[in-house]
Design a protein around this nucleic acid. Structure first.
Length: 357
DNA sequence: AAAACGGGGAG
DNA sequence: CTCCCAGTTTT
């Protein structure tokens, strides 16, 4: 980019930038918090979470001293929950080992859990004005068009190429403003679909605009394949309490509370389901109530379809315990971190059932 | 290098 | 429905 293009971009930014609470500060804590929340997450979606985290944990020590359940509870609904766990771990590390002081360079920042190349560059440039370019989805798109670059942004080779372009495009006088501006341009003007080229401040320098290839940029190699998962949930209750457990590591929604559940890659037969259900716990051999389900939902994820069926098992007296699951009062149901399917079930089935009573 | 990991909005 | 979002970690 030419010095004039840099100036045009910054002028555009100063006029058109959104007012965001984590801007106009050099305190790395709110910057870091916002960057982690905004990983693969739109500003509109992450905003309320950012505000809630800042309210509950105004500084890194308070976040560090929180329990993992508190953190996950606040994160509930945002997705990619490992972000919350990594963020919590990093807060503890900085609070306890670094006296609450963030590392001062992108190289050092990138060594922390949950901080990769993008977030390290973002914090380093926004908080410390380090001359390092950020490379997120917006920047990939803007650069691919600006330079009419046809390397795939999701290939190793392509990433190296864009890293080079990003350094060449960086405004060394105002790296922090440049990074903010180029991302903002990608979000507001140089959008994936229907980019607003007529109002683009750097249209003059855009190679793809000149070549009329804007709609073909960026190039992606990856193909998104969708996998199905058939989940069978058991809402086991006696009118007072029901069974829940924390989901285990190595699977979706780890660390969140959920109902007893059995999953298959393909729709199981009744006998397979019966067998799997009984395997949950030997005590349940005589409990065979799932000839029908009471509620069904489909949950669409990025590369997965979850088909969920819920079976309502009512007991008089004690609910049979299952290994790993514990009894929770019905009234405490909404105060637990919960999987999305559990939430949906609560909303569409449990609450309706109660209303009828 | 590829897969896993969420949820929501836009087209 | 597909694509993408202020990506990172694990396999």
């Amino acid at each position: 980019m030419t010095p004039i293009a840099h100036t045009e971009l910054l002028n555009w930014y100063s006029v058109n930038k959104r007012k965001l609470p984590w801007r106009d500060t050099q305190n790395p804590y709110p910057i870091w918090l916002s960057e982690v929340i905004l990983q693969q997450t739109r500003v509109d979606q992450g905003m309320s979470y950012y505000l809630r985290f800042m309210e509950n944990f105004p500084d890194i020590h308070q976040l560090a001293n929180a329990s993992e359940e508190q953190v996950l509870k606040l994160w509930q609904g945002l997705g990619y929950y490992s972000r919350a766990r990594n963020m919590h771990a990093t807060a503890k590390y900085i609070s306890q080992n670094l006296n609450g002081i963030f590392p001062g360079s992108s190289v050092e920042l990138a060594k922390l859990k949950g901080i990769g190349p993008y977030t390290a560059a973002a914090i380093a440039s926004f908080a410390f004005h380090e001359a390092v370019p950020v490379l997120d989805g917006n920047v990939f798109r803007v650069l691919s068009r600006l330079w009419d670059e046809d390397s795939a942004i999701d290939s190793t080779q392509g990433k190296k190429r864009f890293q080079l372009l990003a350094f060449e495009s960086l405004n060394l006088s105002y790296p922090h403003l440049h990074n903010q501006a180029i991302m903002e341009l990608g979000a507001l003007v140089c959008k994936p679909k229907n980019p607003d080229c007529p109002n683009c401040p750097i249209q003059t320098w855009c190679m793809a605009f000149k070549a009329d290839t804007v709609s073909m940029r960026p190039v992606k190699a990856g193909k998104t394949k969708v996998k199905n998962r058939y989940m069978h949930y058991f809402f086991m209750e006696n009118g007072k309490s029901f069974l829940v457990a924390k989901r285990k590591a190595g699977d979706i929604w780890q660390g969140l509370f959920d109902l007893p559940e059995i999953s298959f890659d393909a729709q199981p037969s009744d006998s397979q389901l019966t067998q799997a259900f009984q395997n949950l716990n030997s005590e349940l051999k005589q409990v065979q109530l799932f000839s029908h389900f009471v509620y069904e939902s489909i949950h669409l994820l990025s590369h997965r379809r979850l088909f969920a069926r819920f079976y309502h098992l009512q007991f008089e007296g004690e609910v049979p315990g299952i290994h790993g699951f514990e009894l929770v009062e019905l009234e405490k149901l909404t105060r637990l971190p919960a999987s999305r399917l559990f939430e949906k079930f609560q909303k569409n089935y449990i609450l309706q059932e109660r209303k009828q009573e």
